[in-house]
Write a protein that binds this DNA or RNA. Structure first.
Length: 352
DNA sequence: AAACCTTTCAACCGCCCTCAG
DNA sequence: ACTGAGGGCGGTTGAAAGGTT
């Protein structure tokens, strides 16, 4: 059976919103909250579909929307999250406060996608289009890729949960105040973070366990390149492609700040050689993540560089073969993970 | 100055999910 | 378990603005 239309379409206005319509919608929501979107147009005196009103509000009129040019940090965030999450704009938007999924999607399609393609990077897979930069296919890489796939799926699930919580919270508090923020969200929802890590701290999941119920769709796993290829495509390629400024529009020259040995945090500070401060055992098999980093960084010792800690498996055995994973691997994935984690709120106790 | 082409982005469309009844 | 309403999401469209010839 066919779905009934969201509203009676006859006689309803379509197309660009006028300032008068905006004012009506704003005034109504300010006074009453949006409540039921379907019922809103009639109550607000608008000849619009409720869905259209919702879109106008969420994508344009909402007071907590930042408009204007995307910063370099935002661009980097979008690219890295897109590498991790694919075209999941709402999920990506949760990491870009004040940006709407629609705006991010548009920006990706009109700017970033083209730019990556121009630089020889497949914007879908984030791999080199030329195929000359092939990654290794050894067990380590495969294992790391599997770990990343798991991580990506958990992160996706978490983002969905966050979005749901946010929705529920908004619905509960559909407050008649324009400046209402979802402040009653749980910390994990209010502040994007890989809090799934905390869950995994409490209940260690063996990524290689045959009992794992995690599965991967082709698109998900295809979306995630192996660390090596990713390093080459996004990090190392960055260092090369960011220097193609002759062929790039002027703004692209700014992208040269993406040095292969540099991770730029959301605070704008360079984090050369920075490693995410987590000790989650499930991450120990991943390039760029290993136990002992936090302590190493905290005591500021230079006596042992990252690669030394790198090779340590979670059971304390040194696996020198892991050291073969070069610095760029670590830096690239630290870039992704560190960026996602950089907004970590004060850490809650591990979930039970 | 005008015609044509390209880019941008607000808005729409249709599918999907959730949830209440 | 089923159904339909409500809302969210991602893909696509098309008008407007900007650029080029």
């Amino acid at each position: 059976m066919g779905r009934s239309p969201c509203c009676e379409k006859i006689g309803l206005k379509k197309g660009p919103w006028t300032p008068e319509e905006d004012q009506k919608l704003l005034a109504y929501i300010e006074e009453h909250g949006h409540g039921s979107w379907r019922a809103l147009p009639a109550k607000a005196g608008l000849q619009r579909c409720g869905k259209s009103c919702r879109l106008r509000w969420t994508n344009y009129l909402r007071p907590d929307i930042k408009r204007g040019k995307f910063s370099l940090q935002e661009e980097q965030t979008i690219i890295q999250l897109h590498a991790l999450l694919g075209n999941r704009w709402s999920a990506i938007a949760t990491h870009l406060p004040k940006r709407t999924d629609n705006e991010i999607k548009n920006y990706w399609n009109t700017h970033l996608k083209k730019r990556l393609a121009k630089m020889g990077i497949d914007p879908v897979t984030h791999k080199s289009i030329s195929g000359t930069l092939t990654g290794t296919t050894d067990d380590k890489s495969a294992k790391a890729a599997a770990s990343l796939s798991h991580m990506a799926q958990w992160e996706s699930a978490r983002l969905e949960a966050e979005a749901r919580l946010a929705r529920e919270s908004k619905m509960r508090t559909a407050a008649p105040t324009l400046h209402a923020q979802p402040t009653n969200l749980p910390a994990s929802a209010a502040s994007p973070c890989l809090d799934v890590l905390h869950a995994w701290q409490g209940t260690k999941i063996d990524l290689e366990s045959p009992t794992s119920t995690l599965t991967f769709t082709g698109s998900n796993s295809a979306m995630l390149p192996t660390p090596n290829t990713n390093r080459l495509d996004v990090s190392e390629s960055n260092s090369a492609m960011w220097h193609q400024s002759d062929e790039l529009e002027s703004e692209e020259s700014d992208w040269q700040f993406f040095s292969r040995h540099q991770v730029l945090g959301l605070d704008g500070k360079e984090r050369e050689g920075d490693f995410i401060g987590c000790e989650e055992p499930w991450l120990s098999g991943m390039p760029g993540v290993g136990p002992g980093f936090t302590g190493m960084l905290l005591d500021g010792s230079n006596e042992h560089d990252a690669s030394e800690c790198w090779g340590e498996s979670s059971n304390g055995q040194t696996e020198h073969s892991n050291q073969a994973l070069d610095e760029e691997d670590k830096n690239y994935w630290n870039g992704v993970l560190g960026m996602v984690n950089s907004e970590l709120p004060p850490q809650p106790p591990p979930l039970v």
